[in-house]
Simulated assay, not measured.
Amino acid sequence: MDKEILLVVDDEKEIRDLIGIYLENQGYKVIKAKDGIEAVDIIENKYIDLVILDVMMPNMDGIKTCINIRKSKNMPIIMLSAKTQDMDKILGLTTGADDYITKPFNPLELIARVKSQLRRYKEFNVTNNQEKGIIKVDDLVINTETHEVKVSGKNVKLTPREFDILKLLAMNKGIVFSMEKIYEKVWKQNFFESDNTVMVHIRKIREKIEENPRKPRFIKTVWGVGYKIER
């Protein structure tokens, strides 16, 4: 199962680290930002599943950051603040936040809120994503309708054959495909034992989507069997 990527935004390092420890213990991948400016930059360049956002921060506060995020993204946002007045909560929620927790907070309550928001978001979006032809593998996003591929928010240009191979593996996460099977499904032709066409295409795809093609995160080699994208 892919790890959800959570962004924790707070100007206090101790709080960022504390929240990070609790989330990582639950199996989430955590990225941290010290203010709204850094958070917006991260969100523009990486795929994020959920944001935990402090209200009171220098440079760009949580309210302005939330408004900024909502201009182009729709992941869940949980606001975090020492303020308890109703107007602060209302302001946070009306600017696009999905939930609001006041400091000091119970870590177990925060975890419960995170899980609830992720569950609701997935249930709400799964049908829309399927209809739009969206396949997500960590921060790799494949749009089967438009033939667009993004990694960490950045567009990746693939040839039609490369796209078809990536799509085949991503739509069948966890299943190992031999070179023969990939060739027959993508090229629609009989495979010849000496043909290394698939291997060459896999290498080119890795060069485009992997940060380190020699240590791939997405397309894994199952030695002596074939290739797969893990769940």
Rank of each mutant, 00 (worst) to 15 (best):
D2F: 08
D2G: 06
E4S: 15
I5W: 03
I5K: 15
L7H: 01
L7D: 00
E12P: 03
E12M: 15
K13Y: 07
E14Y: 07
R16E: 12
G20Y: 04
I21K: 10
K29H: 10
V30F: 01
V30Y: 01
A33K: 06
K34L: 08
D35A: 08
D35Y: 03
D35W: 02
I37H: 04
V40E: 09
D41I: 05
D41K: 11
I43Y: 02
E44N: 15
N45A: 11
K46A: 14
Y47T: 12
Y47F: 06
I48S: 00
D49V: 03
V51E: 01
V51W: 01
L53M: 14
D54V: 08
D54L: 08
M56K: 09
P58L: 06
N59T: 09
C66T: 07
C66E: 04
I67G: 05
I67W: 00
R70D: 06
K71R: 13
K71H: 07
N74T: 13
I77K: 00
I77D: 01
M79R: 04
A82K: 04
D86N: 09
D86E: 12
L91V: 10
L91Y: 03
L93E: 06
A97H: 03
A97W: 02
A97Y: 04
K103M: 13
K103Q: 13
P104F: 07
P104H: 09
N106K: 08
P107G: 00
L108R: 11
R119D: 14
R120Q: 12
K122R: 13
N125C: 09
T127S: 12
N128G: 12
N129D: 15
N129C: 08
N129P: 06
Q130K: 11
E131Q: 12
K132S: 08
I134P: 01
I134N: 03
I134M: 11
I135E: 12
V137T: 08
D138K: 14
D139Y: 04
D139N: 15
V151I: 15
K154G: 03
K154H: 13
K154T: 07
V156N: 07
K157D: 14
T159D: 10
T159P: 02
P160Y: 05
I165H: 00
L169N: 08
M171Y: 00
G174Q: 05
F177D: 00
K181I: 08
W187F: 06
K188V: 10
K188F: 04
Q189Y: 04
F191W: 11
F191T: 01
V198T: 01
M199Q: 15
V200A: 10
R203T: 10
K204E: 13
I205G: 03
I209D: 00
R214W: 04
K215F: 10
K215A: 13
R217Y: 11
F218I: 10
I219S: 01
T221W: 03
W223P: 05
I229M: 02
